[in-house]
Design a protein around this nucleic acid. Structure first.
Length: 399
DNA sequence: GTCAATTCACATGAAAGAGACCACGGTCTAGTG
DNA sequence: CTAGACCGTGGTCTCTTTCATGTGAATTGACGA
């Protein structure tokens, strides 16, 4: 009879982690290092809401992993602590990037309504109906203020058009008893520039930019979190520095640094090491990158996979750049082989652009003079996972 | 030799269609008293 | 009589197609030196 307790105990003995949660992306720490000024700023802008006054709309910029969301959420938590149960204020957070939840105008509204306690069907209703419902439910609620935190708002606007934001900002004039304060969070620094001037002036009443963390700040953050996350003496100084350096190279992305540390921890654990070493960081870096790419490839729809497969195959033959036309012709053949409908070139062109966005390929638009304009495509997938990627494609395409 | 026009092979935009999904309201059907 | 099944209509959403317009430099060809 196997003693399961023994196995389980040995796992917990060997574990390097004390509390892995601390390194997870959604963990929100008590204090946010190096963001005191920003947090203070946000708080001072939103503070009047405690008295039920409508404050300025706020717009927060900053690259990924600079602590925007964290800071805003921190302030909103503190605000909620203050109001407690008195019905002055309500704060709703919504991430506009979540697919299938909030990436269209309709769905954002539906999601908000749901959070406010109403319900609307996932589809089937005209959008203006949903607006009406939203207004209705707002008017009914006891709170006089609603702070709406829209995370990754640039993603939403890119898909929906800024009309949506315009409607939202204008909603206030239609509401009698309730006022809405919008807090927009965006990764894209140039986002406000491409908005309609009307929206820009009302949404960007207050702006705040989060600068990237530098390596020293990253180290500090990592050290604090590592202290909580790992058992004592698991993490050495060099490891922290290395993690910070990696992340600093990527525009000071703290989330990435934390990921790196966590994965490194997991790897060390699996290798039955009782300390995280530099080599684990390197491995973790590889693994993160690799998982990301393989995951993208695997979950991509069939047509996308076919196009990608064509690119792979073509690049096997020619080392130097290949062009849209080549890919398309090859793609057509592949489609015939596997009996799949052939998409138009227009579409394939868009697919290539998306691959570029995803970082699977480098596609540069060049002009070959008399011989037209096209995309020059190069692979951006590291050599060491190329074979595996191909394997996935072949498998899922049934070739 | 110079310079503007031409030309290619796509890129990029806009609009609209197909098909999946869904709500809503009306009509039909079968079960119940 | 009524609950539930079953339409038809009208809406959203995603993926595509169709049609239209844009674009940058190699090439061409007229021009003048």
């Amino acid at each position: 009879m196997v003693n399961l307790d023994e196995i389980f105990d040995s796992v917990s003995d060997r574990s390097l982690f004390r509390n892995k949660q601390v390194l997870q992306a959604n963990y929100s720490p008590e204090d946010i290092p190096h963001r005191g000024k920003e947090v203070g700023h946000i708080a001072s802008i939103l503070a009047p809401s405690l008295l039920g006054e409508k404050t300025s709309n706020l717009f927060v910029y900053g690259k990924t992993g600079t602590g925007k969301t964290l800071s805003v959420q921190h302030v909103s938590n503190e605000l909620m602590k203050r109001v407690k149960n008195s019905k002055i204020l309500r704060i709703e957070y919504l991430n506009c990037k979540l697919k299938k939840v909030a990436d269209t105008e309709y769905r954002i509204l539906a999601e908000l309504i749901k959070k406010l306690g109403g319900s609307v069907p996932a589809t089937g209703l005209p959008t203006d109906q949903v607006y009406l419902k939203f207004i209705e439910i707002l008017e009914k609620s006891e709170e006089k203020l609603l702070i709406l935190i829209l995370d990754e708002i640039d993603q939403a606007v890119k898909k929906i058009s800024d009309n949506f934001l315009y409607n939202l900002t204008r909603l206030n004039s239609e509401l009698r008893d309730v006022q809405i304060i919008i807090v927009g969070i965006s990764n894209d620094l140039r986002f406000l520039d491409c908005l309609d001037p009307r929206v820009r002036s009302s949404l960007g009443e207050e702006e705040l930019v989060f600068p990237p963390y530098n390596a020293i700040q990253l180290q500090d953050i990592l050290r604090k979190r590592a202290e909580e996350a790992f058992k004592p003496k698991v993490v050495t100084e060099g490891v922290i520095a290395k993690c910070a350096a990696f992340a600093a190279r990527e525009h000071g992305d703290a989330r990435r640094a934390l990921d790196l540390l966590r994965v490194a921890g997991e790897i060390a654990e699996r290798e039955a090491d009782f300390k995280i070493k530099i080599k684990h960081i390197d491995k973790a870096n590889d693994k993160i990158e690799r998982d990301k790419i393989l995951d993208i490839i695997e979950t991509e729809p069939k047509q996308f996979q076919l196009v990608l497969y064509s690119i792979f195959k073509l690049l096997e033959k020619t080392k130097d750049g290949i062009f849209t036309g080549d890919i398309y012709t090859y793609y057509q053949d592949v489609c015939k082989n596997v009996n799949v409908d052939i998409l138009t070139q227009r579409r394939v062109s868009d697919i290539l652009a998306e691959f570029d966005m995803l970082g699977l390929i480098n596609a540069r638009v060049i002009s070959k003079g008399r011989w037209g304009r096209t995309r020059e495509v190069k692979l951006a997938i590291p050599e060491n996972i190329l074979e595996k990627s191909k394997g996935i494609l072949v498998g899922s395409l049934g070739l």
